[in-house]
Design a protein around this nucleic acid. Sequence first.
DNA 1: TTGAAATTGAAATCCATTTTCAATTTGTTG
DNA 2: CAACAAATTGAAAATGGATTTCAATTTCAA
Lengths: 150, 150
Amino acid sequence: MAKKASAQLSEYLAGQGLKSTSQRDKILAVFVEAGRHLSAEELYARIKKVHPGIGYATVYRTLKLLAEAGMAEERRFEDGFTRYEYKTSEGGHHDHLICTRCRAIVEFENERIEALQQDVARNNGFLVQSHKLEIYGLCSACQGKKNKPA
Amino acid sequence: MAKKASAQLSEYLAGQGLKSTSQRDKILAVFVEAGRHLSAEELYARIKKVHPGIGYATVYRTLKLLAEAGMAEERRFEDGFTRYEYKTSEGGHHDHLICTRCRAIVEFENERIEALQQDVARNNGFLVQSHKLEIYGLCSACQGKKNKPA
DNA sequence: TTGAAATTGAAATCCATTTTCAATTTGTTG
DNA sequence: CAACAAATTGAAAATGGATTTCAATTTCAA
Ligand SMILES: [Mn+2]
Ligand SMILES: [Mn+2]
Ligand SMILES: [Zn+2]
Ligand SMILES: [Zn+2]
């Protein structure tokens, strides 16, 4: 899978007249490995453990590049950080449930909601390009716990 | 209506041991008058035409204060600015359709979508606190027009 | 092998928003 | 009304995530 990802990136780069670099390969590998919804900051922390030479700016740049290449999706939740998630060719669209206490993120798909959104848009003369649905609340683990102490 | 708003603010301030000031009154009046979804920047521009003495920071501070008082709602769309909308006692919850070309914002309510969100949350053990649904696309006016030129 | 073009890391810069701080204003107390 | 502690203000400085600059390095087509 990481094999495939790096091949996909190389292909994109070649097609755009851009260059393959070891930094890009390494960042992509760590990113794919790390799991979803990472901020640049978080990814950088992981990167530098394995590849201390790689710079901060390069992590930012590569994440944007991956988004342009269609290999990552940019997400801005309400915590002030831009997060990225790796996008496989299959793994389709989904929305998010976010715990306001422990920050847990649960993904979901609901075709009925999607359909109703289309209806709403059509009724207002809009042509849908994208949408964002985030449900904030308390996950089951957090519902029982005391208030503030994270 | 603006009468009522300023009374509501005074009441909130008194209750919190905070002070009524002419700046707060004036900012509120312009805010209520101006319409929905204003950024601090936009509101400041309007304010200074009428009340040149009022400072930038005070506009920011007052907007946050109004949000705390429950008289304004903070919205973060995808344009990098925090926007505020005046919240009347009746005017209930709604979501937004946003034109990616002309930035027009249309409000809508859809109880079926709301209900389905509750279902999704329940199925995942979440207790809903709030949510955010934004549909991005082209408004009818913008669908016919050429690509980029805003 | 060569060299133009792309990329890199570090530091500087951007930019919306927040904070600092001294001066002013408010509202309460006597 | 006077006095004063506490809150507020405007201007400027600071913050913080993200982007840009720039000289040095690397890539890759010729
Ligand atoms: Mn996700
Ligand atoms: Mn609205
Ligand atoms: Zn939780
Ligand atoms: Zn439009």
